[in-house]
């Protein structure tokens, strides 16, 4: 895992405003600060597929770039 760029450190499921399940991804940035990135169902599923994850816990350790790729692929 590279430490000079933002990395996914966890993910949780949440209820979204539009009535679907959302993916709340926790991202750790260089320096240690963290924030939550909320992905809609389509992007969340695409992120799991792109990371080869079949469980949300398997997203930890992947680069922030996978989120961007997932979003652009939807």
């Amino acid at each position: 895992m590279s430490t000079d760029e933002a990395v996914i450190v966890g993910a949780e499921l949440a209820a979204g405003h539009d009535g679907t399940t959302e993916l709340v991804v926790r991202l750790r940035h260089p320096g240690g600060a963290e924030n939550a990135v909320v992905l809609d169902e389509d992007v969340g599923l695409a992120l799991m597929a792109r990371c080869g994850a079949s469980h949300v816990d398997e997203l930890a350790g992947h680069s922030w770039r996978r989120i961007m790729e997932a979003g652009d692929g939807v």
Binding site: L13, T20, L23, L45, S54, V56, D57
Partner: peptide, 26 residues
């Protein structure tokens, strides 16, 4: 409160903690 819904017509994050379900439904 917020309700969420899904069907098996398309993948859903509802199953995102069940790997076999994820693999089948995707």
């Amino acid at each position: 409160p917020i309700d969420v819904s899904f069907s098996l017509l398309r993948p859903s994050l509802f199953f995102a903690r069940l790997p076999r379900w994820v693999r089948v439904l995707r």
